[in-house]
Design a protein around this nucleic acid. Structure first.
Length: 269
DNA sequence: GGCCAGGCTTTTC
DNA sequence: GAAAAGCATGGC
């Protein structure tokens, strides 16, 4: 089958595995040393060879889109330097930080995904989202797009039951309906103050601070968002009881990702 | 079988 | 207001 391929210089230390499995996204799987996923309506495979990052699809992958998606213009060396300097514990977390980059995912997809993440574990979240896409997403060859808010907004709880989301189904439907009705201002999530952005999202039934912060960090390019889940809460009380140093408030989300990864691997001690 | 998982809403004190 | 219960599901 004929395919199209684009190539980027691979950023130093960038790890697809760490980036895709660190809990920020749920739709990438590894097969035969390549990562397969759907972004928007593009089903692609991605891999690293020597110093190059390849993105391949049936249709030509949009170069600018993927440059943004992988945050290839983000200076992660600079982020690590600043975060390391802010606190000894952060210095250690950075020293163990693998090549994670914060993906710039679609806002609606990130919002919906993290609504489904609450009081749940990553393997099961992945399963629910996989079923959600298979049942309700637009078919794309062998895979499916993430379903639109429009599609989901017309469903009932019963119709959503095959995805086995449990009590989260009603939250997802409220998010879809409010989005379609124009009650959630996505521009404000991207460009308003972080407080305004939070208010915009927590208007949704079932969206609290944690889910809002995740959606903002992963889906709305807000690096200052700082999600605190049970893992982060343990790490913060053990190592940063005074809170995150304010001089890195603008990149708190990046620090969060390194700490989250560190404590999941090593425990909070 | 109890506990936990990238929590939030509702109820109760 | 703070604390606890209830919520669906599945892996361990």
């Amino acid at each position: 089958m004929h395919t199209h391929k684009i190539v980027f210089p691979n950023p130093a230390g960038f790890s697809l595995r760490d980036t895709f499995t660190c809990g920020q996204c749920f739709r990438w799987t590894e097969r035969e040393s390549r990562w397969h996923g759907v972004v928007g309506e593009q089903a692609v495979s991605v891999w690293v060879e020597q110093d190059s990052l390849f993105v391949e699809g049936i249709t030509p992958p949009d170069r600018k889109f993927f440059r943004t998606y992988f945050d290839l213009d983000g200076d992660y060396e600079r982020y690590k330097t600043r975060i390391s300097a802010a606190h000894p514990f952060l210095h250690m977390a950075c020293a163990h930080a693998p090549g994670i980059r914060i993906l710039q995912q679609d806002g609606w997809e990130a919002l919906a995904s993290f609504i489904l993440s609450q009081n749940n574990n990553i393997p099961r979240i992945t399963g629910i989202i996989d079923r959600l896409c298979t049942y309700f997403g637009k078919p794309l060859g062998n895979s499916y797009a993430f379903p639109t808010a429009e599609r989901l907004s017309g469903l009932t709880i019963d119709e959503l039951s095959p995805i086995r989301a449990g009590f989260r189904a009603k939250y997802l439907l409220d998010a879809a309906r409010q989005t379609v009705e124009g009650r959630i201002n996505f521009d404000r999530c991207c460009q308003g103050s972080i407080k305004e952005a939070r208010e915009e999202l927590t208007r949704i039934y079932g969206v609290g601070i944690k889910v809002a912060e995740c959606a903002l960090l992963y889906g709305f390019n807000r690096l200052e968002a700082f999600p605190i889940d049970v893992w982060m809460a343990r790490a913060m009380s053990a190592h940063l009881p005074e809170g995150l140093p304010k001089e890195i408030a603008d990149i708190a989300g990046v620090a969060q990702q390194y700490v989250f990864h560190y404590v999941r691997l090593n425990g909070s001690k």
